[in-house]
Design a protein around this nucleic acid. Sequence first.
DNA 1: ACGATGCTTCGACGTTAATCGAAGCGTCGG
DNA 2: CCGACGCTTCGATTAACGTCGAAGCATCGT
Lengths: 228, 228
Amino acid sequence: MKAGPDISIVGALIGDPARANMLTALAGGVAMTATELATEAGVTQQTASSHLAKLLDGGLLALRKQGRHRYFQLANEQTAAMIEGIMGLAHHAGHRRTQPGPKEPALREARVCYDHLAGERGVALFDSLIRRNALSAAADGLALTPAGEQFMCDFGVDVEAARKSRRPLCLACLDWSSRRNHLAGALGAALLQTIQDKGWARREKGTRIVRFSPPGARAFDKLVGERI
Amino acid sequence: MKAGPDISIVGALIGDPARANMLTALAGGVAMTATELATEAGVTQQTASSHLAKLLDGGLLALRKQGRHRYFQLANEQTAAMIEGIMGLAHHAGHRRTQPGPKEPALREARVCYDHLAGERGVALFDSLIRRNALSAAADGLALTPAGEQFMCDFGVDVEAARKSRRPLCLACLDWSSRRNHLAGALGAALLQTIQDKGWARREKGTRIVRFSPPGARAFDKLVGERI
DNA sequence: ACGATGCTTCGACGTTAATCGAAGCGTCGG
DNA sequence: CCGACGCTTCGATTAACGTCGAAGCATCGT
C-alpha cells in the first residue's frame, strides 16, 4: 500500500465519457451553464447535474452563480494543465474521439488552452520569446526579462496589469499536439488577448479553435519568425 | 461534441483504485513484477493480470520480459509527470489515501519521481540551480548553461553521458507536494544518482522515500543554500 | 401573481466492470 | 523429465454507477 494522494478519485472523475466531454469543453477556459454542458456531453440535464456535482465535489470545477444560471469552469490553471497532459498521453496512445476531420488540423494549429494560446502557433510564439531572451528560467518555472518586458510593451501588452493579478505571471504548459511548451499564466492570457485585440485572430464560437485571419497570420509569422 | 484526444480512456484507467495503486507504486520509476504489483494493489494475481493488460493496452505501462518474470514500468517520463500532476490536484482537493502518518512528511521532504529527486529538497535543488544561472529557459523548457555545465562537472555529474541518452536533458516537473518545479530529464536522473553515489542519501526500499543521512543533509543544505 | 425557465433530487432500470476460483500455458531448477 | 513457480485466460458472481422519467425548488419575466 502506497502513501500519498489518491489519484483514483480524480481518475474516476475523468474516466466517465460524459464528464470527460465536459472537461474537454471547459478546457478552453470559458464558463458554461449546466444545460450547455449537458448538450456538450450528449446527456440529459439531470444526468449532467449529477456529473457536475461530482466534479465540483472533486475540486475539478469552480462554480459561479449568476441569477438562475450556474456557470461552471475549471477550478484553476493547474487543472487545465493536467487535462492537457492527459490529452498528450491519449493522443500519443492513439485514443481519438473523432476520426481526423477538418477540425483537428485547426486545433493543432492554434487553439485556446484555459485562457492562453496553444497549438503550433502557441509553441512557435513560445520559442520566439525564448530566442529573444524575453523569458528566462526562474525558481518557479519562468520569468520575464527586462528585454521581454520591453517586447511586451512594444507589442501592446499591459504587463503591469498582468502582474497585478494573483496568478503567476509566466508558466510553461505542455502542449498535447506538439509535445512542446507554450506560454501560460497571466502573461500568456494577456498575450492572447492582445493578439485578438489587434484583429489578428479570433476565437471560433463554441470550439477551442483560434482562427487567424490571413493578414493576421502573416503578421504573426513575421513576429515569431524574425530573429533578434 | 468536442474534438481532440479522448481523455476518458486514460481517466478510466487511472480511475480504478487497484490500477491507481499500481501506478502510484510505479511512479518511483522502478520496474516491478506482476506479483509484486498484485500485493501492492491488494488484489489477487489474476485480477492484477487483467489490470496490467489494460494498462499496457492503454499505453501507460511498458513491459520488459525477463525469463519467467514480467517487469512492468511506466511507459515514459511524460506519464510519470502526468501522475504527479494528478497527485497535485488530489492532494489539494484533500483526497488522501492514508491519514497523515509518519510516512507522508518523509515523502514531502524528499522522494523519487520516476528517476529524479522530488519533494522539498528537489525543489530547493531546482531553485538553487536557477539562482546559479545553471539553468535557463529554452525552446523546449530548460537548458543547461555553461556555468551549469561547470557546476555539474565540479559536483561529479557526467554531463556528457547524460547528453548521450535519447531523453531530453533538462525537464521541469511539477511537484505535487510543493506545487513548484523540480528538475527532471536525463540530468535530473544523473544528479540523483550522484547524490546517492556520494552517500548523501539512499532510496528507502519499497517506497518512494529518499532518506538523507545527517551529514548528507548538511552537505546538501550547504550546497543549495550558498548564494553565488 | 403567474407561468416559464434553469437546475436539482428521487427512484428505478440497465449495463458495465471489478473480483476471485479454477484451470491452462510457459519457464526455470534439478 | 518432472515438479515448482509466474502468470494468463475463462467463467460466474456481485457491486457500482451511469442513465433517464417524473417531480420538486428556485429564479426571472411579464
